[in-house]
Design a protein around this nucleic acid. Sequence first.
RNA 1: GCGGCGGUAGCUCAGGGGUAGAGCACCAGACUGUGGCUCUGGGGGUCGCGGGUUCGAAUCCCGUCCGCCGCCCCA
Length: 397
Amino acid sequence: MITALRGFRDIWGEDWEVFEEIISTFKNRLRDFNVAWIETPILEPLELFVRSVGEFTDIVQKQMFSFRDRGNREVALRPEGTAGVVRAFVENRLSYPIRLAYFGPMFRAERPQKGRYRQFYQLGVEFIGFSGPYADAEGLISAYLPLKDLGLKVKVFVNTLGGEEAKVKYSEKLRDYLMDLDFLCEDCIRRRERNPLRVLDCKVCSPKLSPPDILEMVPKNERDNFDKTIRILEKYGVPVERDPKLVRGLDYYTGLVFEIKAEELDAAQNTILAGGRYDNLIYQLGGENIPAFGWAAGIDRISLIYKPSQKPKDLYFVVRTSDEYFEEAFEVLMILRNSNKRADMVFEEGKSLKAQMRRANKLGARWVVFVGEEEVKRGVVKVRDMETGEEFITSLD
RNA sequence: GCGGCGGUAGCUCAGGGGUAGAGCACCAGACUGUGGCUCUGGGGGUCGCGGGUUCGAAUCCCGUCCGCCGCCCCA
């Protein structure tokens, strides 16, 4: 048997319906934010991700599906959505400001786990040409509202990187601070040299730390923006919590960063949506110097906790008393479908009426339509309501 | 990429050197035109795959693939 590759999976039936409900909930809400939808390629030049996500990030260093195509070009399956959308924005010279939204599969060669796949689905937005605290706030609100619509219990964590300079400066200052400590765990001793920001995430060491706060290094205007953004968010009903340790794993973020976590999920996969401001990326990718803000939601993870709405299927199921009336039954089936009814019947021959009824029941049919000698003779059908058991005769709908 | 645990019927799992099991699901019957509930019967597995040990392996050993958990990282 040939099976799917590690970390890749099939999604069908109820699982796919859950996906669709989640996506359409986002679509409905994002419509109110006046977004335009965009579809970009799954395969892009490797260089695009090296330049945007960051050459030294883990994603680029060890998690990309990259290879040479037949023309010997270095290409990669997209590990995230922002790079492609920004590339498309620059390449097609889209007018701005513009709010773009996308949905599609992303690929990362990570170790699979629950809620963590090598092909996973993200729905995201890029608000290009918008800046300032109101823009940051509306961007975050556009992420929060769909999650509320889905009925999820979430917590919003925010922080600011205060611009590229403040980010670098802070990283150095933090390293200095950590170098003087003698109680760090083995992992953190290794981390403090290469990636001091990660030490802040360590479950063991973090509680013992009193690290310098990045806000002390953030320029005053950035700090004012950050404070004002939080005030706006609170005014519009988005409860936020500052997490001074929050730093995103992609290099392109420059200002506000945020993560939304689901309370119902374990820490390993509880971040269901994340994003932030990236004011330099468009310029870095050959465009004008345009500020932007974006986020991406992990649909696979959201589908782990979303409880689908239980809407009954109004399915009509046509049964025949004998295969003699197959043709008439099929005719009824097509009449139902032509009047836009969801309808089905048993196509295998030699199935007893009882077996057909069982099938109808299994598929959750609301109505069963009988076609038999009596009905054919009189040019009518008998309809049974499967919930109440009531039956009635009617001419063809 | 590293560490731990696991893989037996469609699903959830028991069995742990001597003929492959249960529940659920599926199929068919139980007053000859009617589902669900109940009863009866039935089909279905090269016990993840490959190699080794053994008279004999689902069972023990090695490898490998896949899954889950943790690390790393992230949606």
